[in-house]
């Protein structure tokens, strides 16, 4: 009975915590705008097939309507092969969101496991893990990603793996340092004094404390991931044309940028708007989750 009462207490506290976060987040208009745009982009990606058929509009070439400007029929105009730019942008959102979400999820889980293992094991294991992370950290990031993606043989899966691996050391460092700081806090000592086991302390106290920091970092990394993935495809080391990936579209459009400026403007703006929304969302979230940050 005693146990149940305690559970209820934590439950109400965490739910009011979430409400608090939402209340603080809502007050930040820019971040709300970011959230709304992110939701719109996600919806566009989900319903891409409804908006424009992939095979006939985004991939199939129609030489008779190539390089047209924006019109009622083709909102963003058509590209050098007569493909509808709007259809390609909308389908391209799927690639960018897949990269952002999949890579963040993989490096978050991987980094958390490695960081937690390092801080929990301590001693030699911790030392070895940290030196390996140091080695990853001091290699130039883009070079590491490019080499990995070329080793794994360019394609959706290999970009995801390459970008995820590059992201792991960062999360592992955060988790490790948060865990180490928290384990010395007084309330952990108090929890120990109350006779709670290590598992309960880790899951009940340490993880929730690390989580807000991880969420903020994950949100902040989304924009970077979207830009890196586009850069990889742009230099030809990622998604290959004719796939409508935004970076690959920029690479194709570059040839025509002297006369058809919109071919490099539109995919670029798509990247900027997506990245900016994720950044605004991350900013608002970090303020809402940690009110101390904002004076």
């Amino acid at each position: 009975m005693f146990g149940r009462k305690k559970k209820d207490l934590t439950k109400t506290r965490s739910s009011s915590g979430l409400a608090d976060v939402w209340f603080r987040f809502r007050k930040n208009k820019l971040s709300m705008a970011g959230l709304i745009v992110v939701v719109i982009i996600i919806l566009l990606a989900i319903f891409a097939d409804v908006l424009a058929d992939y095979d006939t509009m985004a991939i199939e070439q129609h030489p008779e309507i190539r390089l047209q400007g924006p019109s009622a029929e083709h909102w963003f105009g058509t590209d050098a092969y007569g493909r509808d730019m709007f259809a390609r942008i909308v389908h391209g959102a799927r690639y960018s969101l897949t990269f952002a979400l999949a890579c963040t999820a993989i490096s978050l889980v991987g980094g958390t496991l490695i960081g937690a293992a390092a801080s929990y094991a301590g001693g030699i294991v911790d030392n070895v893990i940290m030196r390996i992370l140091d080695a990853f950290y001091c290699m130039p990031g883009m070079l590491l990603t490019i080499s990995l993606s070329s080793a794994l043989g360019m394609g959706l899966k290999s970009i995801i793996i390459a970008l995820s691996i590059s992201g792991v050391p960062g999360y592992a460092r955060i988790v490790r340092s948060v865990m180490l700081t928290i384990s010395q806090q007084e309330y952990i000592e108090a929890a120990r004094a109350c006779g709670f086991g290590s598992f309960r302390i880790i899951v009940g106290h340490m993880v929730p404390n690390a989580i807000s920091m991880l969420i903020v970092n994950a949100m902040m990394s989304m924009a970077g991931l979207i830009m890196s993935a586009a850069a990889l495809s742009y230099i030809g080391m990622g998604i290959q044309p004719p796939a409508p990936e935004w970076g690959a579209m920029l690479q194709e459009g570059q040839t025509y940028m002297r006369e058809y400026f919109s071919m490099v403007l539109i995919p670029g703006l798509a990247i900027v708007i997506t990245a900016l929304s994720f950044n605004l969302l991350g900013d608002g979230l970090s303020e809402a989750l940690d009110p101390r940050m904002k004076d």
């Binding site: 586009a230 920029l250 940028m257 490099v264 990247i271 900027v272």
Partner: peptide, 18 residues
């Protein structure tokens, strides 16, 4: 500065060239 934090470097290159 918030906007420029969301601009991919290679695209900025292209825009400056144009």
């Amino acid at each position: 500065s918030l906007i420029f934090a969301s601009v991919p470097g290679f695209w900025l290159c292209l825009m400056l060239i144009i």
